[in-house]
Design a protein around this nucleic acid. Structure first.
Lengths: 249, 249
DNA sequence: AAGTGGTCTAGACCACAAC
DNA sequence: TTGTGGTCTAGACCACTTA
């Protein structure tokens, strides 16, 4: 008995293509048959073929170029860039990111604003919800624009006021600034992932079907009191992050 | 002058729905207008409406239940579960995950197999590509099946052979086992994200548009020689991971 | 039974890219 | 000019859920 095809026609087409992509019949970079061609080959209409293709696009297996055709994406291997996470303190008191990446702002740098702490942020910062926060929001790039991230810094005005200012320096100067005020620093870093909103797709120049990595870093003092919070939003493709630890007693 | 609607009709419909979801006109859990209703309201055909809806589904903004309707997904806030990453060593020499989650295997536990190290894994384990590896693969669940993960453990046979065995115990017994052989342990943890393959969607019971978090943990000895590698694949929704660090000198 | 979404047809016209 | 994908129509029939 021959195998009876299961499920809807569009999925059979998607699976036929997927199998041939994964087994190497259609190698990466190779143009795939046109929609019209596939429609004739499977005896279905073009919208049906397109529905199958949309699954492969969402899964990031193929890339479709307007007016040119459909192409196999490069296989999922390890990302090109590994980004060690951590903060280094030099003997002279300067702070720097361990990953050593030099970011520069994209476009006009918008002036800092203020916001009322939403629940989740207030929780992490140990302040009541609605507490006013200093906000700096920067779209940054590096590596000749190959790399982008959205970097947001949040500091409660109550902490700035205690130091007699209303303006926080950017990270990592902020950390040296905290240290100069007698704090010894540690960080908690929360990592999660989600699909991007349309604005994020354009801002970060994301390809179809690429999720985001979302890092929330809370800077704490020696008594585990939160001082500041950063969120870093980066593309989930071509990038991995690295944490190092030994045993916790 | 009134605003002229831009872009294709289906995107206008998607944006109309998205705006009303984000501004609270359609609160979470509320049923949205039916496809037929939307088609009449916008003067388009049902496939056009469906194309717009497919964008919202991919972005995880709405959830569609067959025969019932379309519903607003809960907003993207902080995930329900925070999973601290790390390994604890008790004074009696036992090791345990810092997150304290008790996992149990789903279905029949498959016996360990062997594989030839692929390039990326060989690189992290410091062995030549193709080196034979011990492989344990387990689909695990916790919290009454609410939580699932795919846990793979890889150990070079060369390391097992040096201890006169061909069978590695599961993590975290493996760590105590290494320690008993004179190693002092550290870990490197690589975090990345990607969209799931169809098998992973079913194994992990993923909803539409939910990316994966993919953790690769390498266990190193005191001389930074890799001993074993684990990969943990978990749903990207409802879960975040937490790393803690202080300054690197 | 009525209403929902899931699948599919057989076309059409358009925008874009390459030749 | 030709071939590609992008958008859209105006229906059809089916499977599923709820009442």
């Amino acid at each position: 008995m021959a195998d009876v095809p299961r499920g809807p026609r569009y999925r059979q087409i998607a699976e036929w293509l997927r199998d041939r992509i994964l087994d190497g019949t259609f190698p990466a970079g190779q143009p795939l048959p046109s929609e019209e061609h596939l429609a004739k080959r499977f005896g279905v209409s073009r919208p049906t073929v397109r529905q199958g293709i949309s699954e492969l696009r969402a899964a990031g297996l193929v890339e479709v170029l307007m007016g040119r055709g459909m192409f196999v994406r490069s296989p999922q291997t390890r990302p090109a860039l590994t980004r060690p996470r951590g903060v280094r303190r030099f003997p002279d008191g300067r702070y720097a990111e361990v990953d050593g990446i030099r970011w520069s702002p994209v476009g006009d740098e918008t002036p800092p604003t203020r916001t009322d702490a939403p629940l989740a942020v207030a929780d992490l910062l140990g302040v009541p919800p609605g507490e006013p926060l200093f906000v700096r929001d920067v779209l940054e790039n590096a590596a000749n624009g190959q790399l982008r991230q959205i970097h947001r810094t949040l500091v409660p005005f109550s902490i700035l006021a205690a130091a007699g200012t209303e303006h926080a320096p950017p990270v990592p100067e902020l950390f040296a600034w905290f240290e100069a005020r007698g704090h010894q620093l540690r960080w908690n870093e929360y990592v999660r992932t989600r699909m991007p909103l349309p604005e994020e797709i354009t801002a970060l120049r994301l390809a179809e079907g690429v999720p985001l990595l979302h890092i929330t870093r809370v800077c704490l003092d020696q008594d585990c009191r939160p001082l500041a919070l950063e969120t870093i939003t980066t593309p989930g493709d071509g990038l991995e992050i690295l944490h190092t630890y030994d045993t916790t007693p």
